[in-house]
Design a protein around this nucleic acid. Structure first.
Lengths: 209, 209
DNA sequence: AGGATGAGTTAACACCGTTAACTTAACACC
DNA sequence: GGTGTTAAGTTAACGGTGTTAACTCATCCT
């Protein structure tokens, strides 16, 4: 196909076309198993054309994750409508786990794969749009619970609390995702049961009696 | 070097030579960044010779993990000497976290990378040597606490409890490992603090008051 | 003595991410 | 309206990857 000068809109459109095709392939076949050529073929372009829109494969991967993080944040935003602080915090945890288990490969890309350090510019961007950031919403919800004095009195670091809740949910989800097919020699209990117990443990461990 | 018929012992020796070189490289540079040729060069053999001892790269990776799992199990075995059940269970958790944080790339290989389904034969082997298995030791420790009636009365599934403890520790460690360099936009609290709080939460959530 | 085996070799294949060099359509400007 | 510049595509190529095939030979078995 002969080249054409594109408007900013068309340019963005192709970029999201690449992102969508890349995500679909990455998510179903795994990052390492998908080649740039394959992604390009999927959208009917040559492989090298992708490099006009992304620096390299890592950059494409990061863009995908960034997009999906925004999607997660937007489902979080819906949950934030709940007014009762504790209830809201619990609902966030459930939404998180639900996302992880229903999009496991997505989740692996986003939270189980280390991405090389972002550029300073990208960090700046993220900070400016932090209201779209899922962690920010979690922290907000935790802060509300804290201000309602519902946490145990000795707990007074909101970041620490939020990160512990995150870690608890992440632990169940990540372990499930990496070990689900493998490690059949362990008598795994049902993942929903494990999530539920983790939830209970977190609440009993963090909230006032 | 001309070929030579080897005794069973020499054969195993070369196998562990490959495993050790492979682990060293994998752990310092990451699995995907290390080629079979590089491993071979390290030990002074040609790349293809590795294929006489392992089916493919995945197989080598699995063998490395299997070896290291045994190593983890042996540090667990030392902890098992503690007699007081609750104390012993806590010590296991700390040993686990200590292992994860002091050998992060090791840990990533073992618990954060999905390995394709083991062959039936390998599963059999693992089951037979389950006393060397780290999870088995955790489960044993949890069972002892359970039998001492120290868990909350409504908790009566030992596997579920063990897996929840595992998930909690794993969550903190895994999140730390994947997010340590990246995600500088989050105000991470100290990882030791996070571990400590997770520990406290797990105990308060699981044990009788 | 002589064939079978097994542990090593080199050569080669198909594919990968990425770069370089090229083509051509659209725009900016005199 | 010609003309240079730029943007967005292309094909060709490079070096590297996991892996397989074909080949040596030293050793063992009979």
């Amino acid at each position: 196909m002969p080249p054409k000068v594109k408007t900013e809109h068309e340019k963005q459109q192709l970029k999201t076309l690449i992102i969508d095709a890349g995500r679909e392939l990455f998510v179903t076949k795994g990052v390492e198993a998908v080649s740039m050529r394959e992604i390009a073929k999927q959208i009917g372009y040559s492989a090298t054309s992708i490099y006009h829109h992304f620096n390299d494969k890592q950059d494409l991967l990061r863009s995908i994750c960034h997009t999906d993080l925004a999607a997660l944040a937007s489902t979080f935003a819906a949950v934030m409508q709940i007014t009762e602080p504790v209830e809201r915090m619990i609902a966030l945890g459930k939404a998180y786990a639900n996302f992880a288990l229903s999009h496991p490969n997505h989740y692996r890309l986003m939270f189980m794969t280390p991405h090389p350090a972002d550029t300073a510019q990208e960090i700046q961007t993220k900070q400016n749009y932090s209201e779209q950031d899922a962690y920010f919403l979690l922290k907000t919800a935790v802060t509300a619970v804290y201000e309602a004095k519902r946490f145990k009195p000795e707990l007074n670091d909101v970041n620490l609390i939020a990160q512990t809740i995150w870690a608890g949910m992440h632990g169940v989800c990540a372990l499930h995702i990496t070990m689900a097919q493998d490690a059949s020699w362990i008598e795994w209990s049902d993942v929903q049961q494990r999530l539920q117990l983790m939830h209970m443990v977190l609440m009993r461990g963090l909230l006032r009696d």
